[in-house]
Design a protein around this nucleic acid. Structure first.
Lengths: 349, 349
DNA sequence: CATTGCGTAGAAAACGATTTCTATCGTTGC
DNA sequence: GCAACGATAGAAATCGTTTTCTACGCAATG
């Protein structure tokens, strides 16, 4: 491992000054004679020069990096978002620092700190935490933050959200229209806006359909212990919830799950227990991940334009970075019901 | 956006020199009096100081970053690997620069270049390309490269591989044992070692079972055009292959797919076309991703310890970085058959 | 008592780049 | 023919750190 070649080595070889070398190699608009330009370029190639971005970025105060924090890319919902973000970032020549918070508030906080230290120019975050001070630090330093998917109340921050209330409403309404009246809601802990809004919309729909909601039908899973970062917590939770459902005295005929992963785990376990979907229990999921298609039966779900959310948010970020006037500070994406085969239409309809 | 606070501001406030401030704030072993230490720490807190890693890393020549390149995290197989890598990296205080090559050789090359420029201390790569010069650049600069999943021939490089040959062998043998003789192999282009070895093992198994392989039964999908980075290419390919299979004159009774995603797409399309699995066609996948469980029917597949591969590779990387003597340069992980319900046992068995 | 060595602190150099400032041409304008 | 200007190039300052070098006082050693 020899000492790495720097701009100075090139200067020496090409009989030029480091200043000129830098100007040539970084495509500056500063005029350099064609002859010298050529010599410098060939010297750079000869020495197999690789610019040191740490040096450049320190001087220019531009890390060309944005950060993104999501719970976990093991959920295809989030990996879609990430891919959307990456695509736009790459198109703009930026790198993405990806962090999986694993639903851990402490970890999320640490990642945010690291991003500050790494001098990211912007952050896109689907936050687990409602803490306001953390994100304020970024605005204080003039770093753009875009919150996605989880509505943040009373914060002066760019947001790209999704109408979870309406989504919950659509899911429950659909079940009601199919003749169901005993409808449960299975969900991970109601620790973030998305889930809270979903339940709200769900309840609203029942009320509107004059269905009394049995509080015992709100099945909330335990707070997960993150021992294994690979295990798909949502999927496992779905399985547990299925068992809890079958133990209910007056068993519901239909269920809305807070996301597809959970719905799939739910269906999986139901199948295993010999409870038929949709004959015995109907299930609606949320997110419309690719795999919702391939379950047994194919999952009826509420679509979420996740990939677009990733692209939007990153596009918005660059608008802000480029100083363009971004006059909308919150965008709300719309849900869409995707009907497949996991919901039974009851006879009396 | 005010000027950011640096070590100099702290020095001024605490009436100390920048040198001393640095020593205190970076936990150097250099002795500093307790009193001064206290003053500096309180000054840092008062000014809400955030260290600039670009400065530090430039000086220390340690980016505390490793890179990982995989085809795409939209494939749960790769997101598992990534999560394994991240876990170990984080435990060692390192960041991970994740790049999705999207099966694009050019892109992969660009990412590698960026990693060089970003001064990563190591790279973990599941490479799409057989090009040797690229990776050699890293060894030349003393950067550790660990190749995973794709065997590299005749390169002096650390490797963590998987016995794809044996995996292919096991899949085909299982089908043969279940009485199948008309067995197809559906795969994405044979452009990398994993797939080539799988086919090899597959053929070996057939030969050993005295089954003649019909070359028309080797179904290779087109090279994908990467227009949409979100679409799950493998899954789509699986669907296409299913259609091609049904058009075959002497239709096979069983199929091995080169990965679960493809198998799932394959099954999905078969279902749609009214071809029953496993009654009409048996299917075996590869990788044993979580979702292999939830297809209709649950997928019989060959397990791949992907998460462990991620952890192993990153662990090995740090061993090398720490100068520990790593005497094994290639580790080969073993396949395991996971029997579920996508394979039919024929009557004559 | 002179020498060594340790504890403590700051001055200054260094990391690898960019950018401002100076300087020297040759050319143009009047 | 002289001032002004544009093109070109290098010297030197700079980004925010870390680290080496210097320095000084004080205790221990012989």
């Amino acid at each position: 491992m020899r000492k790495s070649v720097t701009i100075l080595d090139i200067a020496k070889l090409a009989h030029a000054s480091p200043a000129t070398v830098s100007r040539v190699l970084s495509n500056s608009s500063y005029p350099v004679s064609a002859e010298l330009k050529r010599k410098i370029k060939s010297a750079a190639k000869e020495l197999n020069y690789t610019p040191n971005l740490l040096g450049r970025q320190l001087k220019t105060n531009n890390s060309m990096t944005i950060g993104i924090i999501v719970p976990s890319i093991s959920n295809p919902f989030y990996s879609s978002i990430v891919l959307g973000v990456e695509e736009i970032a790459r198109a703009n020549g930026y790198q993405v620092l990806l962090c999986n918070s694993h639903q851990d508030v402490i970890l999320e906080k640490q990642f945010l700190q690291t991003m500050l230290e790494k001098q990211v120019k912007g952050v896109i975050i689907s936050s687990i935490s409602a803490e306001k001070n953390l994100l304020r630090q970024f605005s204080d330093k003039g770093i753009c933050v875009i919150s996605i998917d989880q509505h943040r109340e009373g914060e002066d921050i760019y947001q790209i959200n999704y109408d979870y209330r309406k989504g919950g409403f659509m899911a429950a309404s659909h079940l009601a229209e199919c003749g169901h009246t005993k409808i449960a809601f299975v969900t991970a802990p109601l620790d973030r806006p998305s889930r809270i809004y979903m339940v709200q919309g769900f309840r609203d729909a029942l009320r509107e359909s004059r269905i009394l909601f049995n509080d015992g039908y709100l099945l909330v899973s335990e707070i997960p212990k993150n021992t294994n970062y690979n295990s798909n917590i949502e999927f496992e939770n779905g399985k547990t919830m299925a068992r809890r459902l079958t133990e209910l005295s007056d068993r519901p005929t239909a269920v809305v799950a807070c996301n597809d992963l959970m719905a799939l785990g739910f269906i999986y376990e139901l199948n295993r227990l010999g409870v038929r979907v949709p004959d015995d229990v109907s299930v609606i999921g949320f997110d419309n991940i690719d795999f919702a298609n391939i379950s047994m039966p194919p999952l009826t779900t509420v679509d979420h334009p996740k990939y677009e959310m990733g692209k939007f948010s990153c596009g918005m970020l660059f608008q802000v970075l480029n100083g363009e006037n971004v006059n909308i500070s919150e965008i709300v994406l719309q849900p869409k019901l995707v009907i497949r085969n996991s919901v039974r239409v009851l006879a009396n309809c």
